[in-house]
Design a protein around this nucleic acid. Sequence first.
DNA 1: TGAACATATGAACAGTTGCTCATATAACCA
DNA 2: TGGTTATATGAGCAACTGTTCATATGTTCA
Lengths: 108, 108
Amino acid sequence: MENESVVSKIQGAITRNSELFEELANLYKIFGDASRVKILCALTQSEMCVSEISEFLSITQSAVSHQLRILKTSNLVKTRRNGKSIIYSLTDDHVRTIIDCGMEHIAE
Amino acid sequence: MENESVVSKIQGAITRNSELFEELANLYKIFGDASRVKILCALTQSEMCVSEISEFLSITQSAVSHQLRILKTSNLVKTRRNGKSIIYSLTDDHVRTIIDCGMEHIAE
DNA sequence: TGAACATATGAACAGTTGCTCATATAACCA
DNA sequence: TGGTTATATGAGCAACTGTTCATATGTTCA
C-alpha cells in the first residue's frame, strides 16, 4: 500500500519525540480535573488567595492547597505573600489560550 | 477589600457554568495520556488502521482498541471499514488546534 | 464452509488520583 | 508571648485508569 511510507514517517516522528508527547500529556492531565480548570479559569480573571478559591469551589482548604501545589509545581501559577495570605496568579497567558482552545471545541 | 466584588463575580460565573468546566476537564482528560495524544497526533497526519497504530506505539492491539474506543465515544475520531481493517481518522480539526496549543506552551 | 486475519470486548490487576483528616508551619496582633 | 488566622503537608483511602490476557465478533478468500 502506498500509505506505508507515510505511516512509517509518522511512526518515526512520534517515536523520536516520545518524551515530548509525555510532556504534552502531563500538561493536559493538569487541565483534566474540574477543580483545577476552575481554579485556572478564575485566575485568568483575577489573582486570588487560597481561602477565596476554597470558598467559591466549595471544597476544603486542604484540597485547594493540594491542587495549587500541583499547579505551582507545573509552573502554571506563581505566588506572592500578602500578610497572612498567599496570593496565587497565573505565570503567563498560555493557560488562558489553552482553556479558550478547549472551550471552542466544546461549543460546537 | 475592593477585590471582593470581582471575586464574587468570578465565583458566580464559575458556579453557574459548573457543568461546562466538567465537560472541559473531561476533554482534557482525554489528551492527558501519552498513548492517546500520540494516536491523535498521528491521525492529524494521516488516517490509519488499528494495527498500524499498534505497531508504531509498541503497545498491544487490545490496548489500542480500548483507547480508540475512548476517542470514538468522545467523538474525536470516526471510523470506516476497509475490508478487514477499520480505518480511524479525526472527526474535525479541533484536535490539531488543541495539540498545537499545548505544544506551544511546552516549547518555551 | 473453515482457516486466517483484523478488531472489539470483558475481567483482572497494579498504579495513580483527589479527597479528607490531623497536624505542622507561618504571620499577625493584643 | 500566646491566641488566632492562613496556608501547607503527610498519611490513608476509595475511586478511577490503562494495560494485559483471554476470548468474541466480523471479514476475506481458498
